[in-house]
Design a binder for these strands. Structure first.
Length: 467
RNA sequence: GCUCCCUUCGUCUAGAGGCCUAGGACGGAGCCCUCUCAAGGCUUAAACGCGGGUUCGAAUCCCGCAGGGAGCGCCA
């Protein structure tokens, strides 16, 4: 039997980081076993589902390269099928019409709460023979009253539920639309899902779904309930934690492979290994190895992994992503240094591509003002002789290369009797406007002779004016 | 309230009775390197929630407790 997993988000918002990990684990598990990964959009809540959210989920998955083998399937397009199955359940005595009003149900629950019982439907319409005139009924599944339902969960282990804890849940609303738990059951059956991998907030739904499946004469799939992902402070992830949408991570300068690598290590590990290629993940991943407990997101570690992938990444690909970020910053890259050159100069010192893009601005834009602190420290009268000497030598340099520039810097420092640092830092401030840049020789090379000389002149003028 | 789940350094985790004076990683601290920022190298602090058992021996097995979480909708 081939393994078939599914990722089944409801399109009520963007793809968030927890959903992304669920999708990843589903994808990995199916890949590991040479199976199929199915995408199903659970859009039965027409109030909250939006077209834009569907697109956001698709975009997020595409960015993370978690392509489904089948789908997306939409539950709203399968209503006829759900009604058909509900009819079958009804005909076979596994379901019944319930005419209770919402007020009646509320009153029942209130009473149960007073008695310190778990609020649940008490089965009062089970044996009703006659319809109630003028009332559109819902259809409820007739849940077994005796015995137990055992979930042999791949992550949580054996979980036992008493059937009397489970009530007769509504499978079709009074308006004829099917409910979530029922759609899931029919879909998982029809799509021949072998492994249901989802968040552990669904663990309590598993026995209900299994019972419906059994009534339908189908063997339930294997379940694997993943622990939740928490915010950095250990509380439930929410908007106030900042980036929750995976696309926000792109905007913040993260690489998809870094996000994936970070996510795979949340609740799963392989000895002491931290860095995994896609191929390694697929080869090593097993759902049985997933942890039971929730894990908090650690932004620092994500940053570290991202830096790893930038440092070791493919230069042309990084350059393309850098371009994307520069465009977002509104930087015109025409006529500037090569983006690949910028990547090479900065890939060891940028934690994110956004940071790299921001650090690249001065290569394309004029230095309009200096960082006050950097200028106060470095653009001083003391620095003037060095800047002037370099300006002259640079102008005369036949070969504008990092090596040649490095040479000039060294010999000038020597002849002036100063350390390289005393010479390089004022140059850095002059050409970049601030105190941080790649090595000064590489910076100058990338910036080009014309711009470099103009900025040295500008800085020299600045110092004279101040003096 | 009821049902279910979870509990190793701040965080992610290794650990499936002796290999554990509890290992790795991020972050922290210190040192080295250094033209800035980084990167890199080395060193270092830091954890088995608590209480009972079982056992010659428990982070690992059992039972309680405490704390955290999820679910209990004509939401998904």
């Amino acid at each position: 039997m081939t393994v078939r997993t599914r990722f089944a988000p409801s399109p009520t918002g963007y793809l968030h980081i927890g959903g992304a990990r669920t999708a990843l684990f589903c994808w990995l598990y199916s890949r590991h076993h040479g199976g199929d990964f199915i995408l199903r959009i659970e859009d039965t809540d027409r109030e909250r589902s939006t077209e834009a959210a569907v697109q956001a989920i698709l975009d997020g998955m595409a960015w993370l390269e978690l392509a489904p083998d089948e789908g997306p399937f939409y539950q709203t397009q399968r209503f006829d099928r759900y009604r058909e199955v509900a009819g079958k359940l009804l005909a076979e005595g596994h379901a019944f019409h319930c005419y209770c009003s919402k007020q009646e149900l509320e009153a029942m629950r209130a009473e149960q709460m007073v008695r310190k019982e778990k609020p649940r439907y008490d089965g009062r319409c089970r044996r009703r023979k006659e319809p109630v005139p003028g009332v559109a009924p819902v259809i409820r599944f007739k849940n077994p009253e005796m015995g137990q339902t055992v979930v042999e969960d791949a992550v949580k282990g054996r979980v036992v539920f008493d059937n009397h804890e489970l009530d007769d849940l509504i499978i079709v609303r009074s308006d004829g639309t099917p409910t979530y738990n029922f759609c899931v059951v029919v879909d998982d059956m029809d799509m021949r899902i072998t492994h249901v991998i989802r968040g552990d907030d669904h663990l309590n739904n598993a026995p209900r779904q299994m019972n419906i499946l059994k009534a339908l004469g189908v063997t339930p799939p294997r379940y694997a309930h993943l622990p939740m992902i928490l915010g950095p402070d250990g509380t439930k992830l929410s908007k106030r934690h900042g980036a929750v949408s995976v696309m926000q991570y792109r905007e913040d300068g993260f690489l998809p492979e870094a996000v994936i690598n970070y996510l795979v290590r949340l609740g799963w590990s392989h000895g002491d290994q931290e860095i995994f290629s896609r191929e390694e993940m697929v080869k090593l991943f097993d759902i049985e190895d997933v942890n039971k407990s929730a894990s908090a997101i650690n932004p620092q570690k994500l940053l570290w992994i991202n830096q790893h992938y930038i440092k070791n990444g493919d230069v042309p690909a990084l350059a393309a992503e850098l371009k994307w970020h520069l465009d977002r910053l509104g930087v015109d890259t025409a006529g500037g240094p090569s983006l690949e050159g910028l990547v090479k100069a900065q890939q060891e010192r940028a934690k994110t591509l956004k940071e790299m893009a921001e650090g690249s601005r001065f290569f394309f834009e004029e230095v309009k003002e200096y960082e006050p602190q950097a200028a106060a420290k470095n653009l001083t009268a003391d620095a003037l002789p060095g800047l002037e000497a370099l300006r002259a030598k640079f102008a005369a340099l036949p070969d504008w290369s990092a090596a040649a520039l490095h040479d000039v810097l060294n010999t000038t420092a020597e002849s002036l009797g100063t350390k390289l640092g005393k010479l390089a830092q004022p140059v850095r401030v002059a050409v970049s406007g601030g105190g941080v840049s790649p090595p000064i020789d590489a910076t100058l090379e990338l910036l080009g002779r014309e711009r470099s000389l103009a900025r040295l002149d500008q800085a020299i003028g600045f110092i004279r004016k101040a003096g």
